[in-house]
């Protein structure tokens, strides 16, 4: 079993623990997620398909089991993870992410925490060395800020991590990383548990806007890496930092550039041409890299419904299909 997967079985009480341990020992690199739903059989996800975990004798998942998993995942210290609980996830040793579904405990109109868990989704962090090869080749020829697009579960974080690693190790660039949720580098006691390169400085747990300001003030990065730009203040901070000469690697949920241009949060980024390169991860995990030139931005602004870019206008195209 991969060393990063070793803490995973310890999250579960027996007999689920034994089933998880066996699964990870035999099929570790194929397992994308573990899924538990109250009243149902536990399952695991590979290549987008969900398969039952263990044999038919494995008991159904209970609400108590879900609570116990969350307790273990929190290190028996709710106060240490209350902010994460409020947002519906926990980051685990190894960079894995535990998504939580349940009943919201609301105070004064804000979600305080989640209780009465109904389902958990444990997404296993994966390092795929070389999956960003097409992107790094593109960035070498066009060294501009690069936005990685794809639907949820496409592998944007995995590609971003490898891109940062290669920029740092192969190109010798000084990269500052704002790892807001601890998924990119999965730092533990200061040590990244996932390889992000030897010239990479990591801020863990910082909101992106604050992290960008801090990196600019103190670490003199050449590139800044961010995962999932979703908020207007993130976009503002990127905009400000871009004028300081720093370039960005970032990810966003979108099927294509046209998707982005329909959302007010991203319009500013597109209009100011902060990201001149786009790497699009397709459903088959192939990566298409292209320049976000005026013509493509025009296509984005007019909201073409083709669902993808005007491929005949690509200045350069790479395709690579990492293993599913």
């Amino acid at each position: 079993m991969d060393k990063r997967l070793e803490p995973v079985p310890e999250l579960f009480p027996e007999p689920v623990r034994a089933a998880v341990r066996e699964l990870l020992a035999v099929q570790g690199d194929r397992v994308e997620e573990l899924r538990l739903r109250a009243g149902c059989r536990a399952g695991w996800v590979t290549a987008g398909r969900e398969i039952y975990l263990g044999g038919p004798n494995l008991p159904l998942v209970t609400a108590d089991l879900l609570s116990e998993v969350v307790r273990r995942a929190s290190g028996y210290a709710v106060y240490a993870v209350q902010e994460q609980l409020r947002k519906g996830y926990l980051i685990l040793p190894g960079g894995h992410r535990l998504g939580l579904c349940g009943t919201a405990a609301v105070e004064e109109g804000h979600v305080k925490t989640i209780r009465g868990y109904q389902a958990l989704a444990l997404r296993l962090a994966g390092e795929r060395t070389g999956c960003a090869d097409p992107v790094i080749s593109f960035v070498r020829s066009c060294p501009s800020s690069t936005l990685i697009l794809g639907p949820p579960g496409a592998g944007k974080t995995t590609v971003l991590r490898d891109l940062v690693r290669q920029s740092s190790d192969r190109l010798g660039r000084r990269v500052g990383m704002v790892d807001e949720r601890g998924e990119l580098a999965a730092c533990r006691d200061g040590l990244p548990q996932l390889n992000v390169g030897r010239y990479t400085d990591v801020l863990t747990g910082f909101p992106k806007a604050e992290g960008i300001e801090l990196l600019l003030r103190t670490m003199a990065p050449e590139w800044i890496a961010l995962d999932e730009i979703t908020a207007a203040e993130d976009v503002e901070a990127i905009d400000r930092a871009a004028y300081c000469g720093v370039r960005f690697f970032a990810t966003a949920h979108a099927a294509c550039v046209a998707d982005l241009s329909g959302r007010p949060v991203y319009r500013r980024l597109l209009e100011n041409r902060i990201f001149e390169n786009v790497a699009l991860i397709r459903p088959d995990r192939s990566i298409v890299c292209e320049r976000m030139d005026d013509g493509l931005q025009q296509a984005g602004r007019s909201g073409i419904d083709s669902g993808c870019l005007a491929l005949d206008r690509l200045s350069c195209r790479f395709a690579s299909a990492p293993d599913p």
């Binding site: 028996y76 210290a77 106060y79 240490a80 209350q82 925490t113």
Partner: peptide
């Protein structure tokens, strides 16, 4: 009962 409370509670 350690760790069952939020920060204020603890």
């Amino acid at each position: 009962g350690f760790g069952c409370f939020d920060r204020e509670g603890q």
